[in-house]
Amino acid sequence: MKSWWYAWRALVWVTLGRLWWSVHTLLLLFPTAALMLFVLRYRERFAQAQPEQVIEAFAQFTQTVVVMLVVSFLLPVVALGFGTTGLGGDREEGTLVFLLTRPLPRWSIALGKWAATVPLVVLFTWGAFAGVCWLMGPAGRMAWRGYALPLFWGAMAYGSFFHLLATWVRYPTVVGVVYALFVEALLGNMPGVIKRFSIGYYVRSWIYELGAPWGVSPPEMFVPLEATSCAWTLIAITLGSLALSAWVLQTKEYIQQER
């Protein structure tokens, strides 16, 4: 018996397997491990016996590890590693032709690739963050409870945006690298509203608001948005990128370039 569901499930499953058992996963495990080792050493700076010491450690941990290393570095790099290669890998390697000549609606191919890549971005980032928080001790557990949600939506938004790039531009990985390392770093730290073009800005704003009662404050020039606005923006980026990528794949012609 033939069914669209069988085909779509196979697409998701195979994409997931190919992404997970790829060199990207291995390479992403190195910075993750380095980050964890860093936290192992970092926590020695804080005594966390008393509640006020935990709060102090939590505030420092938020600034140094959560914002600077997890949100500004690990999250975009993980999204880059998986998000651009789910569909972008097929485009750059020339295997997309095998998918486009199957009786699967093109929008469902975009959806299938998204369903394989974005959860992987979320789970990897969450996994790394959970590990880091667990290693940090009480302050880390506090950070996990507080920041798991912003990080979830941040990973969803980043992953979906890179997935959109993969359907849209010819060299998604190159554009993804430029976006993740340059545009995010440059725009996200600029004064004024221009930083709203950076996905990381919304995640950081959300984190700053959640951490504010425990003394977490943003840098001087950083003017954060309200957490609710950040949440809705990240959800909108996720859904908008997904819808747009489905529409682009449905309508765009992909002509294989000879190497």
Binding site: M1, K2, S3, W4, W5, Y6, A7, A10, L11, V14, R18, W21, E93, G94, T95, V97, F98, L99, R102, P103, L104, Q256, E258
Partner: peptide, 24 residues
Amino acid sequence: VDRFYEEMSGWEFVQFMVQLHGYS
């Protein structure tokens, strides 16, 4: 074009392509 999912075996590749037609 001579492009494949290189890490797959020939068998896995063909099976995946058949599955994309909706077969169990």
